[in-house]
Design a protein around this nucleic acid. Structure first.
Length: 507
RNA sequence: GCCGCGUUGGUCAAGGGGUUAAGACGCCUCCCUUUCACGGAGGAAUCACGGGUUCGAUUCCCGUACGUGGUACCA
């Protein structure tokens, strides 16, 4: 019996992979690697009504982009498969029946309507959500209230039923969370959760326990939203006789909306203008497409770094960590208890750090697709020079186009007003004349061009300072970008002449 | 409603019985730059509240408030 660390990420394939989900993956991954353990991907597809085509493949794609690929998964296989819960369906019934036989669970025959009726009839102001629990179960139709022969008959007839856990009365159930320490709950406050559904599929509660056991999971990370049902899981480990093999729990804090209240949702991203998913997700039903951090121009290293720091730090002032460094330094005791609001500005700052860390050559293949989206074909050596010139002003990969499109196309918008203010005949004449003599410039470099420009300004009795901004606007379209003469050198004599004349005609 | 969990500047956060309470993002000012950005120098801004314990609490304890999660045949 080895005690090798084994962790798992267990998403339901129901849609886009959310920031919080990726962070859960990341902490799992870091913990596993830090301890030389295994990282397992298990697909929790027990809710057939929520099945979404393509969602599973999408998860693999996201993990790969993030560089957090699992050691075992439905795709990769492994010694504890299958890794898709729908394919493990037959396994679970046995354990549910075992619990019934032991008296820790029971059959329930109540229809959805009957449940609804119970809830609405028992509902009061002080108890708005009546539960199926020790107080109400004896009024319901289950193997606790129906005599044995009749239960057998119902079962034999194939009557629809579920199996529910029989929560004990008056017990305090406690466990130690790696992040939060000792946590206690009263068994009276938890309802008799359904373990096995009418369709024969397990619920999360049963499946997570059975699979974590069978897959020899040693440490279980999950979101804080699971804390209230943890007592059910603890009890299940105990009732099934596996208590000694129970993993250590760690309930991760939530990632919250930057403004307002509540946990971050995909709607917030749309509302506030930032992605929430790792990669683009297209909802097949609604045709709705939501871009992810990838499409928004984030580097996966930066994305990972951002997530790592949202709820964890190593006590030093260091904020930029490579994956390897994170693996080396990550410990759960440094994970926060409180939720963190997501800050998109800081996220962009991180990405900028990574853009600056990369060489121009490394950036080239990353930037290129984002440029080609705009329909331009660019030679690599030319793009390389553009990258060198604009990278310091790019926070996102998408910014390279915003900051450098004028290297490839004529400015689509022109801040003509910025020139008009102090414009006069003399300047008009100056630019017209300057453009005409461009052929005489000895060599087409930023340096000689600038000398040439200065000379002409002096000859015309104008100050260079009054002319620089107009020239920039003519070439770029706005008040931004690298040095004007660097730009002029790059785009060439013809383009400079053309752009200047186009603007001159408008003044 | 009930139950769980949480709470250091606007945000991420270090710290943890005695500190000028780090650092980063963002914001503001200045320098560099005849643009923007990068870089540099500054600045404003924080221990939710009330009781204890203590010579001394941001730090420990208890309340309150607030936030957040759960309260499904969803995960």
């Amino acid at each position: 019996m080895s005690n090798k660390v084994r962790v798992r990420f267990a998403p339901s394939p129901t849609g886009g992979l959310h920031l919080g989900g990726v962070r859960t993956v990341l902490y799992n991954y870091l913990f596993a690697r830090h301890h030389g353990g295994d990282f397992v991907l298990r697909i929790e597809d027990t809710d057939q009504s929520r099945y979404v085509a393509g969602a599973e493949q999408y998860i693999y794609d996201c993990l790969e982009w993030c560089g957090l690929s699992p050691d075992e998964s439905p795709l990769k296989g492994g010694p504890y498969g299958p890794y898709r819960q729908s394919e493990r369906k037959e396994l679970y019934r046995k354990y549910a029946e075992q619990l019934v036989a032991q008296g820790n669970a029971y059959y329930a025959f109540d229809t959805p309507e009957e449940l609804e009726q119970m809830r609405s009839s028992l509902k009061t102001d002080t108890n708005p959500t009546p539960q199926y629990d020790s107080k109400t179960r004896m009024q319901m139709r289950n193997s606790l209230t129906i005599d044995e022969a009749e239960v057998k008959e119902l079962l034999d007839k194939g009557t629809a039923h579920v199996i529910r856990i029989k929560m004990p009365a008056g017990e305090t159930i406690s466990f130690t969370d790696m992040i939060r320490g000792e946590i206690s709950n009263s068994s009276d406050l938890v309802d008799d959760k359904v373990l096995l559904k009418a369709d024969g599929m397990p619920t999360y509660h049963l499946a997570v326990v059975v699979d974590d056991y069978l897959m020899k999971i040693t440490h279980a990370f999950r979101g804080e939203e699971w804390l209230p049902s943890a007592p059910v899981h603890i009890l299940l480990w105990r009732y099934l006789g596996w208590q000694d093999a129970m993993p250590q729990w760690a309930h991760l804090p939530l990632i919250l909306k930057p403004d307002g209240h509540g946990k971050l949702s995909k709607r917030d991203g749309q509302r506030l203008g930032f992605p929430v998913f790792a990669m683009r997700w297209k909802d097949a039903a609604t045709e709705e497409v939501l871009d992810g951090f990838k499409e928004q121009g984030f580097l996966p290293e930066a994305f990972i770094n951002i997530l790592a720091m949202l709820g964890w730090n190593d006590t030093t002032e260091q904020e930029v960590f490579s994956l390897d460094e994170l693996v080396q330094k990550f410990t759960i005791d440094r994970v926060h208890k409180g939720g963190a609001k997501f800050d998109y500005d800081k996220a962009k700052w991180y990405n900028h750090q990574y853009i600056m860390k990369k060489t121009d050559a490394e950036l080239l293949p990353l930037v290129k697709p984002f440029m080609e989206e705009h329909g331009v074909q660019i030679a690599d050596d030319y793009l390389l020079r553009v990258i060198a010139l604009v990278k310091e002003r790019c926070h996102l990969l998408t910014d390279f186009w915003l900051q450098g499109h004028f290297f490839f196309i004529e400015p689509p918008t022109m801040d003509i007003e910025a020139i008009k203010g102090k414009w006069n005949e003399q300047k008009q004449a100056f630019f017209a004349g300057w453009v005409q003599q461009l052929d005489t410039v000895a060599e087409w470099t930023a340096h000689t061009l600038e000398d040439n420009f200065n000379q002409h300004a002096t000859d015309a009795g104008l100050k260079k300072g009054e002319l620089m901004l107009p020239l920039r606007i003519m070439l770029v379209g706005g008040k931004y970008g690298p040095g004007v003469f660097d730009i002029a050198e790059m785009i060439g004599k013809e383009a400079v002449g053309k752009r200047v004349n186009v603007v001159l005609a408008q003044l």
